[in-house]
């Protein structure tokens, strides 16, 4: 059984919600990133989203754009991201979802991506600019692999399309809470709750909320309305804003505990 499915099944039986953490692979460099990821997984993260740095991240706000730049400048790439995932898998059992734009995967070769991430112990793949209409070749490449292709739904997605996305989703459905790019705050909890309930009603998979969730208060307000919460920019910001020589793994772990406590409150 896929580690993502195992995780959601055991969380559901414990009546707990999933904390899904996004971190950019290789931010600020390969070795530090590995330490941050290991510590994050030991600090309450249920599912890890490992971001493949890309030169043109059009769906991301400034925080993740700059993280992507930092990682690329430190020599990060898709191949090194896969290596990072494999290193991480040697010490942690947390499900890993590779979060990427389509171009690095396409250029690398979809069959090769499927084979190498499968061998690395990756459990899911989320391609932020690949709607189902264009996903045929990737779906084919993933056939026979224990890897879920995670789908996204947005506030602008119409009901019949939500059903189509939900039916085709694997692992969980990533429900975008608000318009805009990653890292913009100011969520209207009541709106999000209403939207989440409508989507959960038609989705046979766990539904996780992402975009704009950054504080323990956000986590506390939204955990009850979904199966999990996805936090990205708020964690990446910790790395960006830490003074030189900080203990980055400890700082990120502290932020994760804040969110975890909010969710479990």
């Amino acid at each position: 059984m896929n580690r993502i499915d195992q995780t959601f099944t055991s969380l559901a039986s414990a009546n707990r919600k999933a904390l899904v953490a996004y971190l950019t692979a290789g931010d600020p460099d390969f070795d530090t990133s590995l330490q941050i990821l290991q510590t994050a997984c030991a600090s309450g993260v249920d599912v890890l989203e490992l971001g493949v740095p890309f030169s043109d991240p059009t769906c991301d706000g400034p925080i993740i754009q700059v993280a992507s730049d930092r990682a690329l400048k430190a020599g990060m790439s898709l191949s090194k991201t896969i290596r990072l995932a494999a290193e991480l898998r040697r010490t942690v059992q947390t499900p890993i979802v590779l979060f990427s734009y389509y171009n690095p995967l396409f250029k690398y070769g979809l069959e090769r991506v499927a084979k190498e991430i499968s061998e690395a112990g990756v459990d899911g793949l989320l391609v932020v600019d690949l709607p189902p209409e264009e996903a045929g070749p990737l779906t084919t490449a993933l056939t026979g692999k224990e890897i879920h292709l995670i789908r996204l739904a947005a506030p602008t997605t119409k009901p019949d399309r939500i059903r189509m996305l939900a039916d085709g989703a694997g692992g969980f459905l990533y429900l975008i809470t608000r318009l805009g790019v990653t890292g913009t705050g100011g969520l209207d909890y009541a709106d999000v709750a209403k939207h989440a309930a409508a989507v959960k009603a038609v989705c046979p998979h766990p539904v996780c909320l992402g975009f704009g969730i950054s504080t323990g208060a956000d986590a506390r307000a939204l955990a009850p309305v979904a199966d999990g919460l996805i936090v990205g920019s708020a964690l990446v910001r910790v790395i960006a804003q830490a003074p030189a020589d900080s203990d980055l793994p400890a700082l990120v772990a502290a932020k994760i505990r804040e969110l975890r406590e909010g969710m479990d409150a």
């Binding site: 059009t58 769906c59 389509y102 932020v128 600019d129 690949l130 709607p131 209409e133 264009e134 789908r151 996204l152 739904a153 947005a154 506030p155 602008t156 997605t157 119409k158 399309r161 996305l165 975008i176 318009l179 805009g180």
Partner: peptide, 20 residues
Amino acid sequence: KSGHFGCYGGRYVGETLMSA
């Protein structure tokens, strides 16, 4: 009909823009 010029073109965008 799906906006492809052979293997080129299409729609490689985030889900938020699909409806627009």
